[in-house]
C-alpha cells in the first residue's frame, strides 16, 4: 500500500492504495467519480481520458502513484457551474449517443484545442480526425463528434 495525494477537480484527496492501482481505478472506486469510463484493457479506446497537470492522459495506463502530487481534472470537474463550451458543442451538434465514450472524447477535445491554440496551429477537420486516433466511438460514426469539436474550438476561443 502506498499513500497517494493529489488534487482532483480542485479538491485535495488522499488515500492508501495498493501499488498497482491504476489512476482510473482510484478515480472511479476511491473517489466514486464514475464519469471516467473503462472501455478496453489495452489503453486504446480513450473512454478513460482525464487531464493530468493540464494534459490529456489515459487514466487506465497511468498508475495512481504516478499521479501523486498532480493536479487531475475529470469530466466532472470540467464544467464550472455551467457547461464547458465543448460540452455545449457536443450537445448542440449531437456529438454523443450512448454517452459512454463521451467523457473521454470531451477531455481529449479540450486538450486538443488547447494544444493547437498554444502552438498557433489551425485545427482542421483532418487534424481533428487524426487527433482522435486514441478515442473510439461506436455510435456516432465520428461525423458529429468532428463537427462538435470544431464548433467547441470556436466556442472556446470566444469564451
Amino acid at each position: 500500500m502506498t499513500e497517494v495525494s493529489m488534487t482532483v477537480n480542485g479538491k485535495p484527496v488522499k488515500a492508501d492504495v495498493p501499488d498497482n492501482t491504476l489512476l482510473v481505478q482510484f478515480i472511479r472506486e476511491n473517489l466514486r467519480l464514475t464519469g471516467t469510463h473503462v472501455g478496453c484493457d489495452t489503453s486504446q479506446c480513450g473512454a478513460c481520458v482525464v487531464h493530468l497537470n493540464g494534459k490529456a492522459v489515459k487514466s487506465c495506463a497511468t498508475l495512481a502513484v504516478a499521479a501523486n502530487g498532480a493536479d487531475v481534472t475529470t469530466i466532472e470537474g470540467l464544467a464550472n457551474g455551467e457547461m464547458h463550451p465543448m460540452q455545449t458543442a457536443f450537445k448542440e451538434n449531437h456529438g454523443l449517443q450512448c454517452g459512454f465514450c463521451t467523457p473521454g472524447m470531451i477531455m481529449t477535445a479540450t486538450d486538443m484545442v488547447a494544444r493547437y491554440d498554444a502552438n498557433g496551429k489551425e485545427l482542421t477537420e483532418a487534424a481533428i480526425r487524426e487527433e482522435l486516433e486514441g478515442n473510439i466511438c461506436r455510435c456516432t460514426g465520428y461525423h458529429n463528434i468532428v463537427k462538435a469539436i470544431a464548433d467547441g474550438a470556436s466556442k472556446m476561443a470566444s469564451s
Binding site: 467519480l33 464514475t34 471516467t36 466532472e76 450537445k91 448542440e92 454517452g99
Partner: peptide, 21 residues
C-alpha cells in the same frame, strides 16, 4: 430538438451498471 438525455452524459453523471455499488 436537442437531446434531453445529453446533460448527464456530458457532465459525467450518466449511471451505467458498473457505476453502481
Amino acid at each position: 430538438v436537442l437531446r434531453k438525455e445529453d446533460k448527464r452524459f456530458l457532465i459525467g453523471k450518466g449511471r451505467y451498471t458498473d457505476d453502481i455499488i
